[in-house]
Amino acid sequence: MAGSGTAHLRDPNQMLLRVENLVVEFPVGRKGTVSAVSNISFDVAEGETLGLVGESGCGKSTTGKAVMQLPRPTRGSVVLDGQELTALSGEALRTARPRFQMIFQDPISSLNPRRTVADIVAEPLNVWKVGTAEERRARVDEVLGTVGIDPEAAASRKPFEFSGGQCQRISIARAVITDPKLIICDEPVSALDVSVQAQILNLLEDMKARYGLTLVFVAHDLAVVKNVSDRVAVMYLGKMCEIGPPDDLYSRPAHPYTAALLAAIPLPDPSIDPGATAHLGGELPSPLNPPSGCRFRTRCPRAQDICAQSEPQMQKVGEDHYVACHFPLETPVAAPGVH
């Protein structure tokens, strides 16, 4: 994974979001730095959902937050709708914020416990003084209705009176009320039970169609990501390994890490013996001192000398399917008609 390169980027004029050579570093100790995201590039077309997957510590959430400029990335470019976000000053960035919003993992702690649901959802409108008080109230009711919360019963209640799934619906309402172009979803369903998770995933698809949203969906669950995404990017230790359309990427993973992740998922099918599959050993190396060359080489069953010496660059292995690996798995040929 270790890969860098921009071969997988598409025509910038047709992309809503284009992230190039993104680097996010955090200070460690007196003068050290840890690089949470090391030179990542991707783009998202309007109306598309990009899934970002990887294990904890791979930098997927940091990438999502860097797009939000929370905090601003150390280096690199983030262009939303033709506007370079990293170059915007404080006030200009604030003015741009209604166009890109975020939904967080823990739905309960991301809502202010002392305010009512109506206040929470109306706040973005109040900040921007959109319309009259009447109009704002009508808009809050309408958006709450679309996320499946009864505005009459819920508006004057506080977050603790709602379940996790309902709080996540309220967070979604708050995110869509400013009429954004882009929503970054950071593990939006990983704190929820499977039955509620399915409700929220379906709701996100509905919201996307209704409000014409573009999503960046950050999650560790590969099955969830496949369900919602038009394109999936796999990350490892701050680098991007592989990016491609989900059906192709899951059926023919080209990166050994993607294949290992897929093999580790427990399937709800008792006829498969999980003990018979060889599972990836070892753990994520420390990002303070990442391996040279390809960062996955220390755990990779296919690693050779070259993997320690040079970092693989993104290369095309199929229709819209790119991998950063010196020895990709059975190079899939772009099979026409197979999706």
Binding site: V196, D221, D230
Partner: peptide, 25 residues
């Protein structure tokens, strides 16, 4: 049955509508 069918499956095409269980426990 509902619990099993609410889980997104790897072998389903992406954007398959999930059969969610309505309501809550």
């Amino acid at each position: 049955e509902a619990l099993l069918s609410a889980i997104p499956k790897l072998n389903q095409a992406s954007h398959t509508r999930l059969s969610a269980i309505g309501g809550r426990p």
